[in-house]
């Protein structure tokens, strides 16, 4: 990295975030659990296999269509744990509050968090609060960490994708990013674009409880579907082919992206997962996901190949082909 200061790009979730992790963070904290770079760490404590994950939320604005920073923070960590193939159990909450935040807003956020935790069946068991002078933070920042239990025999990781795997996405992409952007920039949508923030642990549980094979689970949050597919292609050293004609995107979200020049492949999702499954189980897993309340629009998006390891290709609507790279640069800061 040639910059001598942290830029917003370092928080994009794209290429620069990855180089910050691999060049600056990993060498300092280096250990095998961290080096795996999955959504959470997978740990052995005695006989028990656990998933442990943490995430911080700085979204601006704190209230947006369909949710607020509170349920975003709970769902986000639940999903990170679920993507390890674990059942999320306990959550911690750290609140950094700016002096002057209206008490009513604070209460609303707490109540939303409690409701989100109840819905997902997890308990908020510990936490911390700090208040900083006005201007030293922006309204409220939230950190959540969580622990989940991985059942014996479950082995889900970003490095498990195999040639021949089918790739399933659990629903429409780019809803969250566009909902937040629309509110922040005061764009007056003539439609009801809402965040897709949702807990995916029950969907994951249903897949794991079935007899279907499952290689990779990942929620394509910051950096979007395009970046997440690249991460998996690199971690598993495989090629990935996806079809533009299969990409599920709501008309209004697509229209907004077209108008503003955003690529929906790089826009954040907060309630979607991608699953890599052996071809023989693909239809069954797709059906299981579609049965879940947050998976009705699930589709098979593409497949894994042994060609061009580490790269993602998109077959375009007109029959052309192009590379889908990781997000380079910050498309939308403070989206989660």
């Amino acid at each position: 990295m040639t910059n001598d200061k942290i830029l917003l790009d370092h928080g994009s979730g794209g290429k620069i975030s990855h180089s910050m992790f691999s060049e600056l963070i990993l060498p300092v904290f280096n250990n095998p659990e961290l080096a795996k770079q999955d959504d959470g760490a997978i740990l052995m404590l005695g006989e028990e296999k656990l998933a442990f994950s943490t995430d911080s939320y700085v979204v601006d604005p704190i209230f947006f269509p369909g949710g607020n920073i509170g349920d975003l923070a709970i769902n986000g960590t639940i999903n990170d744990i679920a993507m390890c193939g674990a059942t999320p159990r306990f959550i911690s909450v750290g609140l950094i509050i700016e002096e002057g935040l209206p008490l009513a807003d604070f209460k609303t956020i707490l109540e939303t968090m409690a409701k989100a935790a109840r819905k997902a069946g997890v308990k908020i068991v510990t936490g911390d609060t700090k208040v900083v002078p006005r201007g030293k933070a922006d309204k409220i920042f939230i950190n959540t960490s969580g622990i989940g239990v991985i059942a014996p025999g479950v082995n889900v990781s970003g490095s498990n994708a195999r040639p021949g795997d089918k790739i399933i996405v659990s629903g429409t992409i780019a809803d969250h990013g566009i909902a937040v952007l629309g509110t922040r920039e005061g764009l007056k949508f003539d439609s009801d674009i809402k965040t897709d923030s949702a807990p995916l642990n029950k969907m994951v549980q249903s897949i794991i409880d079935s007899s279907c094979g499952i290689h990779v689970l990942r929620d394509p949050t910051r950096g979007g579907l395009g970046t997440t597919l690249n991460e998996i292609a690199i971690q598993s050293n495989v090629g990935i082919n996806i079809l533009e004609s299969s990409l599920p995107i709501r008309g209004a979200v697509r229209g907004t992206c077209e108008l503003l020049g955003f690529d929906p492949l790089y826009i954040a999702n907060e309630g979607k997962l991608i699953a890599f499954v052996p071809e023989k189980d693909a239809q069954d897993v797709l059906e299981i996901i579609r049965q879940d309340e947050f998976g009705k629009d699930a589709v098979i998006l593409g497949e894994v190949t042994n060609k061009d390891p580490g790269r993602v290709f998109l077959k375009t609507l007109i029959g052309g082909s192009r590379i889908v790279d990781m997000l380079t640069g910050e498309q939308l800061p403070r989206i989660c």
Partner: peptide, 17 residues
């Protein structure tokens, strides 16, 4: 903000022709 007339100009048969 659903934009009309996107798909018509991305039609794969027309592109092939």
């Amino acid at each position: 903000m659903s934009l009309k007339y996107i798909d018509e100009y991305r039609d794969s048969d027309l592109a092939k022709m």
